[in-house]
């Protein structure tokens, strides 16, 4: 492979991973935009979505040999079920753990979210111990789980090509792009979307205009969680392995993406996700894979210090 080809290949990989990161980042940025909470549990919610998807795949007995049409329907169904599951779980968590703390000092819900994150991680550990084939009959619950390659590794550019753009990468695009466009339209053109923007701008003023703020916050948690759930299915199909601690890593990448794009900004989260995906791919290739996480965290810290409003975020002055 020539150096250009290597670069192109890393661009494809980076953008595909970036799309997934962006989808998770949207969940962080929406919740932060509306109640200024770093929803630390979001990554672990995403992880549970992957475990649910694997459970369903196991129950239906799907694997790489399943026919194309069935797989197509199944993947759509997995995305929908996982999204509904994560959306409702996120809403429930908000009701139980964050809602009672709305008036508490600002760090209280963050600490609570860290707690929720640990609880979900433990649920993931137990989930991996279910006596099912896909979880290797519950032995070694903590081990990474193989996710069947429903989307194939077939190169769409022809087997002769050195650059690989596979069915998997196409799948990532086909699922994430409509979701992002749909979200943007929803927030821009629907009444609920308008209410969300109003609450994000000023909750008290929004309430005075007759907006049910709690309902809007609930909707935000549902949508954010649903996007995380959808992302978890794509992530599992793309990487073919899931682990009960993957939420932390994916969550930190996505949070970095949200901060990089400007936390609270939807286009920011999408842009940030793509950039973090690219940075990871380039760092894997040109620095060293073992330094990639450190690179991402360094970016996170540098942005927080020098440009906390991110690339696309509005510059806000701290209110006293």
């Amino acid at each position: 492979m020539s150096t250009t080809e290597v670069l192109l290949q890393q661009l494809i990989t980076g953008l595909s991973n970036g799309m997934i990161i962006a989808l998770i980042a949207l969940g962080y940025t929406m919740v932060y935009g509306i109640i200024e909470l770093i929803n630390f549990a979001h990554g672990d919610l995403f992880m549970l979505g992957g475990f649910l998807a694997l459970t369903i795949v196991g129950m239906l007995g799907l694997d790489a040999t399943t026919g194309n049409a069935t797989t197509f329907v199944a993947v759509g169904g997995l995305v929908a079920i996982s999204a509904i599951f994560c959306g409702s779980l996120n809403w429930t968590i908000d009701r139980l753990a964050y809602k009672p703390l709305r008036r508490a000092p600002k760090l209280a819900p963050l600490v609570s979210a860290i707690g929720v994150s640990f609880v979900l991680m433990n649920i993931g550990l137990f989930w991996g111990g279910l006596p099912m084939d896909v979880f290797s009959d519950g032995v070694a619950a903590a081990a990474p789980k193989d996710f069947p390659a429903l989307a194939s590794n077939k190169n769409l550019l022809g087997e002769a090509s050195d650059i690989r753009f596979t069915v998997k990468e196409l799948m990532v695009l086909v699922i994430t792009v409509p979701l992002m466009i749909g979200l943007t339209m929803y927030v821009k053109y629907t009444r609920t979307g308008k209410a969300m923007r109003a609450v994000a701008q000023n909750p008290i003023a929004a309430q005075l205009m007759g907006i049910d703020v709690n309902r809007v916050i609930g909707t935000t948690f549902i949508i954010g969680g649903a996007l995380g759930g959808a992302a978890s299915v794509i992530y599992s199909l793309y990487n073919n392995t899931i682990h009960f601690q993957m939420g932390y890593r994916a969550g930190m990448d996505a949070f970095t993406a949200a901060v990089l794009g400007g936390i609270g900004s939807l286009p920011g989260a999408m842009l940030g996700g793509l950039l973090i995906g690219l940075v990871r791919a380039m760092s894997d290739q040109y620095i060293e894979a073992r330094w990639t996480n450190a690179v991402v965290f360094t970016i996170l810290i540098l942005i927080l210090i020098f440009r906390p409003s991110g690339l696309l975020g509005a510059r806000l002055r701290e209110k006293v």
Binding site: A97, P100, L101, A104, A108, P109, V111, S112, I114, G115, V116, S117, F118, V119, L120, M121, N122, I123, L125, F126, G128, G129, G138, A141, A142
Partner: peptide, 22 residues
């Protein structure tokens, strides 16, 4: 995995944080 009490520790730490905050 669930029958081993030491596998419950994240759950316990997490719940401790959530319940204390609440």
């Amino acid at each position: 995995v669930m029958s081993m009490p030491n596998n419950w520790k994240y759950m316990i730490f997490g719940l401790a944080l959530v319940l204390m905050m609440r």
